[in-house]
Amino acid sequence: MIVPPHDELQGWLSDAEAAELVRQTRGKTVLEVGTWKGRSAVVMALNGAARVVCVDHFRGDAYAGAADTLADWRRQVEVFGVRDRVHVLVGDFRAVLPLLALAAFEVIYYDADHEYEPTRDALRLALAAAPGAVMCVHDYAAGYPQVIRAVDEAAAGTGRRVRVIDTLAVLETP
C-alpha cells in the first residue's frame, strides 16, 4: 500500500484508516465529500480506486482553519500522478450532491462539515440515493460528537452496522 508521509501530503488520515479506505475502494468509483488538500483522494487513487470524484468548497472550516486549499489539492493530484483518476467539483456539497447521480458511486466517503445537521443531511441523501454504496465517514471520534450522532442515527435508520477503524466509521450494509 502506498501512503505518502504527512510532510509530503498533508491530511489527518492514519495508516489504519488509509488501509481500510484502500480495501473499500480498490477498483471502485468513489465520491469523496470534503477533500481539503487531497490526502485521502490521492491515497485511494494510488492504491487502485478506479475513479475518485471530490466535492469541496476549498475554503477550510473551523476545524482545519480558513484557507483556500484548491491550489494545494491540484498540486498534490499532479505531483502524485493521479490526475487521470481524481476529479474535482468545486462548491458547497449541500448544493452539489443533489445534482449528482449518486447511485453511480460504489463508495461514498464523507469528511466535510463536522456539525450535526450537514453531516446528517449528507448521509441521508447519500444513503437514500445510493443504498448499495459503502459509506465511510471520517472523524467519528470523541472530539466530534456531532459526527458520531449523525452516523449513529443514519446507521440505525438503515439497519447498517458501524465498524470503526481509528476515527473512520464504515457503515456496513445489512
Rank of each mutant, 00 (worst) to 15 (best):
L168V: 06
L97T: 04
A64R: 10
I108Q: 04
V151D: 08
Q76P: 00
A142G: 09
Y144C: 11
T119V: 06
L100K: 10
A103R: 15
A101E: 15
Q24P: 00
A66N: 13
R26E: 11
R160N: 11
D139Y: 03
Q76Y: 14
T158E: 13
D15I: 14
V30F: 03
R26C: 10
W12F: 15
V137F: 02
C54F: 07
S40A: 14
V53C: 03
A18C: 11
Q10Y: 06
L46R: 13
D15W: 08
V3R: 13
I148Y: 00
G11P: 03
Q24G: 00
V96C: 07
S14E: 09
Y109T: 01
D111N: 03
L127R: 15
A141V: 11
A62T: 08
E20F: 01
R85E: 04
F105M: 11
M44H: 04
E117H: 06
L97C: 05
A133E: 01
A104R: 15
A142L: 08
T25G: 01
A95L: 12
T119N: 01
K37A: 14
M44I: 09
V164S: 04
R59V: 06
A16I: 02
D111V: 01
L102M: 11
T119R: 11
A142F: 03
L99E: 15
Q76C: 13
T167H: 08
T29W: 02
E20W: 12
D7A: 10
L102K: 10
A156C: 02
T119G: 04
A133I: 03
E32Q: 14
D166I: 10
D56C: 09
V77T: 13
G11Q: 06
P5Y: 02
M1E: 12
